[in-house]
């Protein structure tokens, strides 16, 4: 998938990977790749500034902690982040339902 197509959704995707857990940056990148079946292949270097931007916005918080015997900066959702994720999910479902209704094919209803 093209990085440009992803950019608008990157924030929501990052929030989703952090839903209910605390991860360091590289684990977030791996989670994005695994969940998308390898289709989300964006430059990994863009993920960290995006995470920090979300932190500035108060949607995630981060701290250095020990993961697998090494010091890593790990990220988690804040309460505002969880609310933002819920809103993104609702908006996404409405969007895909609307597009699917038109683009998904299938017979058109008979004209009245």
């Amino acid at each position: 998938m093209k990085p440009d197509a992803l950019r608008g959704h990157l924030d929501a995707l990052l929030l989703a990977t952090l839903d209910g857990r605390q991860l360091h940056g590289y684990a977030i990148i791996e989670a994005l790749q695994v969940r998308s079946g390898g289709a989300l292949d964006l430059p990994t270097g863009t993920v960290y500034p995006a995470l920090r931007r979300l932190e500035t916005a108060g949607l995630v918080s981060s701290e250095w902690s020990t993961v697998g015997g090494r010091q890593r900066r790990t990220y988690r959702l804040t309460k505002a982040g969880s609310r933002a994720l819920a809103a993104e999910r609702t908006a996404w479902r409405e969007f895909t339902a609307a597009i699917e209704g038109v683009l998904g094919g299938g017979p058109w209803p008979a004209q009245a």
Binding site: G25, Y26, I29, T44, Y48, R70, R73
Partner: peptide, 9 residues
Amino acid sequence: DLLAEARDS
């Protein structure tokens, strides 16, 4: 901090 994180990654 940013550079250390980039290096780790």
